[in-house]
Design a protein around this nucleic acid. Structure first.
Lengths: 135, 135
DNA sequence: AAATATTTGTCCGTATGTATC
DNA sequence: CGATACATACGGACAAATATT
C-alpha cells in the first residue's frame, strides 16, 4: 500500500492505477463499496486532494460511481441499447453540452454519440448506454 | 465578473459556465491565451482550487488546452479524419484505457470510438480526431 | 422522531516542483 | 538567472447527503 513520491509519476496517478488494478481484479463486488476516501488516504499515506484526484479519474473512466454520504461503488455493467443508423451517416463522439447532460441523463464523464447525415444531426445518444449498429 | 455563492450552483460550475460563454462568444481567438489562472481567480474572487476545477471541466470538454508554463489556450478546430465502417458493425464510445491513451495519443478527457463486428473489435479510434462513416 | 456519526462535496490557503519565457 | 504560469500535494473548515443509533 505504498506509493513512490520520487518515481516521477504523480501520486494521484499512481493511486488511480493501484485502485484500478484492485477493482479489475475483483477485490470488491460490482455494486459494492470501496473504503472511504479518508481511509484510502490513510492506507496509502496521501492527502485528500490526491485521493479525490484519483477518484475523479476512475469516475471519468466509468469504473466507479460516487454517492455523497454513501461512498464509492464499483460500477455495475449496464445493458447496452442498440440503435440502428442509416447508411451514409457519419458518427462522432464528444462530451455532452450541459443541456444534453441533463436531458439525456448522461453521467459525469460519459460522452454522447452523434449521428449526422449530410451535415444534419439526426440523433444524439448517451454513449454509456447506447451502441450504434450499421444496417 | 461576480459569481453567486448562494445560488446553489457550485462556484466552479458557475465559473466554468462563465468562461465557456466567453470562449464560444469568441472573446479570445482560437489558439490565443486566456488570462492566467491566478488572474481568473482574482477577477472572479475565487480560490485556486475553484479555478482549477473549472479549467479541468473545460479541458475535458475539449474547449481549451492547458500548457504548463504557458497558459490556457482556446483549442483550435481540428481536422476530422473520416474512417469507413463496414455494414453489420456496432459502434460504441468509451474512455480509453491508459494503454490506448498513450498509443493513440488521446488527449485528456477525450474518448475512443470502438468498432466491433460480430463481437470482435475491428478498430479503436480517437474520438476527437476521427469520424466514422457508414457505407 | 431525533440526534449522532459517516462520507463525500466544496472552498480556501499555503507550499513546492517544473516548464517556459 | 529571474519572472511567470501551471501541476502537484497537503491540510483545515464547513456544508450536504446519507446511514446509524
Amino acid at each position: 500500500m505504498t506509493l513512490d513520491p520520487h518515481s516521477g509519476v504523480p501520486l494521484h496517478r499512481q493511486l488511480a492505477a493501484a485502485l484500478r488494478a484492485r477493482i479489475v481484479a475483483g477485490e470488491w463486488p460490482a455494486g459494492g463499496l470501496l473504503p472511504s476516501q479518508a481511509r484510502i488516504g490513510y492506507d496509502y499515506s496521501v492527502g485528500k486532494a490526491t485521493v479525490q484526484a484519483a477518484v475523479s479519474t476512475l469516475r471519468a473512466e466509468g469504473l466507479i460511481t460516487v454517492e455523497r454520504g454513501v461512498g464509492i461503488r464499483v460500477r455495475e455493467p449496464v445493458e447496452m441499447e442498440r440503435v440502428p443508423v442509416p447508411r451514409g451517416a457519419v458518427i462522432t463522439a464528444r462530451p455532452p453540452t450541459p443541456d444534453e447532460r441533463s436531458r439525456l441523463a448522461v453521467p459525469e464523464g460519459a460522452h454522447v454519440l452523434v449521428v449526422t447525415v449530410g451535415g444534419r444531426v439526426r440523433g444524439v445518444y448517451p454513449a454509456d448506454r447506447v451502441g450504434l449498429s450499421t444496417a
